[in-house]
Design a protein around this nucleic acid. Structure first.
Lengths: 195, 195
DNA sequence: GACTGTGAAACAATTCACAGCG
DNA sequence: CGCTGTGAATTGTTTCACAGTC
């Protein structure tokens, strides 16, 4: 689905106004019926005998994925990885805004990263309300990940992205996703050995 | 598959010697038959009436995934993200070794990161042979990604992991995988809106 | 008796083929 | 006439159930 969106954005940039399911399928590397099914699933956007209006379709998908609003994120753990994410272009472009940088280390507090000031993790709860933070991102060392998660949960944030290679436990109503770099490397080395 | 491995390693650490498909399934959150099918697929490792020997099975999976050897990786683009990867624990633990740090910026060349010295990207080809590099990791800014890819291909490396939000084009015999942070965030915000 | 390996059954996803509309 | 939307056919994947082995 996110692939369709990306292709549609490229098409829009090239000035295309209308696209047929077969053309779009070709560009996305999938089957035309697949596309028609997917798009018909959440509303009838196509025009029979014509195709899909690129801009309309793009907006509809964005709305469906929740990418028509901006989402506020907090980073907990300002090491190299945290800093990398704060400055990362692709995240901003998709409507995600890093609005808070938190760390435990007293030596880091007050330091500027981009235009954010590092704040003590203990103040996360208070700041989460003020900044309307909806997503918490953990980029601490492994042994600090659970504590970071606790602070995020405590602050009433319901979604966590964990970059640290540790399982964390949270209440059932909090959504957690893990970024495991090794997964990508395993895929590559596997492909190098087998087909 | 990688999940089985992780669980098996935990079991081994706890001193378990034998595990049944049903127990393992419970720990991995899948169906017992699923596990038996998957494991039977690449050889018969189980003992009927008993179960699977944890250590043997772990070794077999490692061998299958290519994790019984160490893989040498080069990082191209030593910004915050590159540094984060060089120091990342989980990568080392899985048998991936970052053996080269490359950057274009003359001011960075010679600088130490961990116990690596930053080398000019132009010397990648020469160093790739010397260090036996099998995987290239791109952590440059978007506008440098294609150039980095060219250097990696030129050096005869056949697998690329691209962290930069840009499509890169390479010959057909080179495997490319993309790490898109936004994909994870989209998943989370989607879940926050819908179930 | 306990647990694996596997064919058969149930389920889900993908693709085809065509009716219906602009 | 061309392209969407959709039921029907196909393909793939997960689960069940049990025969076979330790």
């Amino acid at each position: 689905m996110a692939v369709y969106l990306q292709v549609l954005e490229e098409l829009e940039a090239e000035g295309e106004e209308i696209i047929s399911s077969s053309k779009l399928a070709q560009l996305c590397g999938v089957n035309p019926s697949q596309i028609r099914k997917d798009l018909a699933y959440f509303g009838e956007f196509g025009v029979r005998g014509v195709g899909y209006y690129v801009t309309d379709l793009k907006e509809s998908i964005k709305h469906f994925l929740g990418l028509d609003k901006t989402w506020n994120c907090a980073i907990v753990g300002i090491g190299n990885l945290g800093r990398a994410l704060i400055n990362h272009r692709a995240i901003k472009d998709k409507g995600y805004r890093i609005v808070g940088a938190f760390d435990w280390d007293p030596f880091k507090i007050g330091e500027k990263v981009g235009d954010l000031e590092i704040i003590c993790t203990r103040r996360l709860k208070e700041k989460a309300k003020e900044l309307n933070i909806q997503i918490g991102i953990i980029t601490t060392p492994p042994n600090r990940a659970q504590r970071a998660a606790n602070h995020i949960v405590e602050a009433g944030i319901k979604a966590i992205l964990n970059f640290s290679p540790t399982r964390i436990s949270v209440p059932d109503d909090v959504i957690v996703d893990y970024v495991e770099f090794s997964r990508y490397l395993i895929y590559l080395s596997f492909k190098l050995i087998h087909g």
